[in-house]
Design a protein around this nucleic acid. Structure first.
Ligand code: MN
Ligand code: MN
Ligand code: ZN
Ligand code: ZN
Lengths: 132, 132
DNA sequence: CACTTATTTAGAATCATTATAAACTGGCTA
DNA sequence: TAGCCAGTTTATAATGATTCTAAATAAGTG
């Protein structure tokens, strides 16, 4: 199975719950952005058994740690995650509270001129807020 | 007084509490980043009377709405604010959980090529995560 | 199967933030 | 200056996302 190896290779046991969450997160045409509550709803809509909220949190954090998900820095009372783990940026529609991907080519190269002693750059993320 | 006019001109009554918070926030050499709890501590350290936590929240939100403060988009359980309301960007030191200002000149112009119908760009913020 | 360790789970706890509603105050007007 | 009132402050409760707990269950191993 597609996700069994992915999980085993990461040192995560391929449990029924994790495999079902993998289907919801990764067996899609397009990548997407989500909060835990939105993911919980998606899971409810697509499987018959119940997965506890604690497991959804546990799984999302495990996947994030393994690099299969990333958090998007944004001001919201809920944490946003992204199934697109490539380097890219975001529009944030303030009215609809929706994230839209901005490819690197839509933004152009960003050259950070300032250096901090003993630190290196891990990521560069651009957030473009949109209003009507 | 310096802040009385500022508040009046914004349609905010210059109350004792607001004026004291203005002193803490704006009567400084350098701008700074803070969470509500950090600000609460600063207020306690610099005034004799008590200001309720609710008033600190109310005031910070009022000042943000008037453009005297801005939120910094970052993944944290607490909201970060900035007394520097000019267009600028941030380093985020993941280890020390500290924010460092990045001036526009340190980043260079950012040209967002993608357009979203009916929306206009309100702000462009760059977050550069630093690791050791 | 027997055993160990990881995982799931319901529910409680945490904690930043927001809501409530009563008391208070700044500013205007008579 | 007194009186009024909308705006503000305040203690406290409520909310809600997230994390914690500890017992039950499931996966891997020999
Ligand atoms: Mn958060
Ligand atoms: Mn927040
Ligand atoms: Zn994205
Ligand atoms: Zn700043």
């Amino acid at each position: 199975m597609k996700y069994i190896d992915k999980l085993r290779n990461s040192g995560l046991r391929p449990t029924k719950q994790r495999l079902q969450i993998c289907e919801v997160l990764f067996n899609t045409e397009k990548t997407f952005h989500f909060t835990i509550n939105q993911l919980e709803q998606k899971i409810k809509d697509s499987i018959d058994n119940k997965i506890s909220l604690a497991t959804v949190y546990n799984t999302v954090h495990a996947f994030e740690k393994k690099g299969y998900l990333k958090q998007i820095p944004i001001n919201s009372n809920q944490t946003y995650f992204d199934t697109n783990v490539t380097d890219h940026h975001h529009f944030y529609d303030l009215k609809d509270q929706k994230l839209i991907d901005l490819e690197n080519s839509d933004v152009g190269p960003i050259n950070i001129k300032k250096k901090i002693n003993g630190k290196r750059i891990k990521s560069v993320e651009v957030l473009v807020k949109l209003e009507d």
